[in-house]
Design a protein around this nucleic acid. Structure first.
Lengths: 184, 184
DNA sequence: AGTGCCATGTAATTCGTTACATGATTTC
DNA sequence: GAAATCATGTAACGAATTACATGGCACT
């Protein structure tokens, strides 16, 4: 058996959504716009490309559902291998998620698939990451404090206040975590 | 003369950076990692692809600079047409910047290229946009308040506190705006 | 009669990343 | 002697978007 490369974020997001309930591509597109919309909103065509790929790799299964008053549809459901893949993703805490700081939020969104300690580890990792960025930004701010460039400084300030707000939220979220649940 | 489609965000970011001072591709890559890094960090190869394109469209010019102790380099400078393009971008307030809420911040970063009222309009637009999202998110929160799904709710809460922090920042930034400057 | 939702997909194109390739100079 | 910095690019690949295509049913 070849070692499968980890699915990309879009694939994992789809996996996460079909982990709760089986869904069609159309469902997923609608759902993404509503619930996860502020974190991840792929186009419909992208979703239709991803779904067969998941089936090919054994992470999901399809089932045709004939309908009378509407077009027939194909609904997708996660497989055990799919569950393993998404758990592995949720267990892995990114130290450097580059520009994509939203991956943390996306992982938290699927926190229900995993025991509480794993979610807690994720939040801890997020906190570390943000504190590090905060320090970097604050030192950047000190370095250019006297200088002229006001607009870059304003933008930097924005980044700082957002991080601070997010850190406060992390504490709140940590306290709100369920005592512990199975994750399965 | 054909009507040129508006350059994309990366092209505009590059234009903005060579508006202050002429720079080489290498300079830009380094600069992006530092100053604008938290908003926009393209790869080096991407920058090297964009620069000739800007020249082709008459938005920038190149000039070869021979050096003795280092490799020769090519430095790029913005043209009047380039300035027009970036000003047009800064003047246009996006009502629906999709997922990419950072475009607002990026535009503010280049606020110096444009008179104060234009920047103010940009901030106002950003405020409107955020207030609208905030209302949407808060109503989503109310709708699912009693329900079970705790993790989605936590993530939603994160989005809300970040928006609130950003709104506070907008007020601060608006007050910090210079009385008025030329922009040119 | 027209609009909108349900439903799935393909095609063309753009955007972007990673890896490869090269090579001198400076610094440790 | 090794590693980092300066400097520019190409090639291969993947991810994602927009536009196109199709068609029935429900609602106003």
């Amino acid at each position: 058996v070849t070692v499968r490369a980890q699915p990309n974020t879009t694939e994992l997001a789809v996996l996460g959504l079909i982990a709760f309930e089986e869904r069609s591509g159309y469902d997923l597109a609608r759902l993404a716009q509503q619930s996860v919309g502020y974190l991840w909103t792929p186009s419909r065509s992208q979703i239709y490309k991803v779904l067969p790929r998941l089936v090919d790799r054994g992470l999901a299964t399809v089932r045709g559902v004939p309908q009378v008053d509407r077009p027939d549809k194909a609904v997708y459901r996660i497989t055990p291998a799919g569950r393993r893949a998404i758990r592995a993703w949720l267990e892995q805490v990114d130290v450097e998620p580059a520009a994509d700081t939203n991956v943390f939020a996306l992982k938290l969104f699927f926190g229900d698939l995993v025991p509480t300690p794993v979610v807690r580890a994720q939040l801890d990792g997020y906190r570390d990451f943000l504190e590090q960025r905060l320090r970097r930004f604050e030192s950047m701010r000190r370095d250019t404090a006297g200088g002229e460039p006001i607009f870059p400084q304003l933008v930097l300030r924005r980044a700082i206040v957002r991080i601070q707000a997010t850190l406060v939220w992390i504490e709140e979220a940590t306290r709100a975590l369920p005592a512990h649940h199975g994750g399965s």
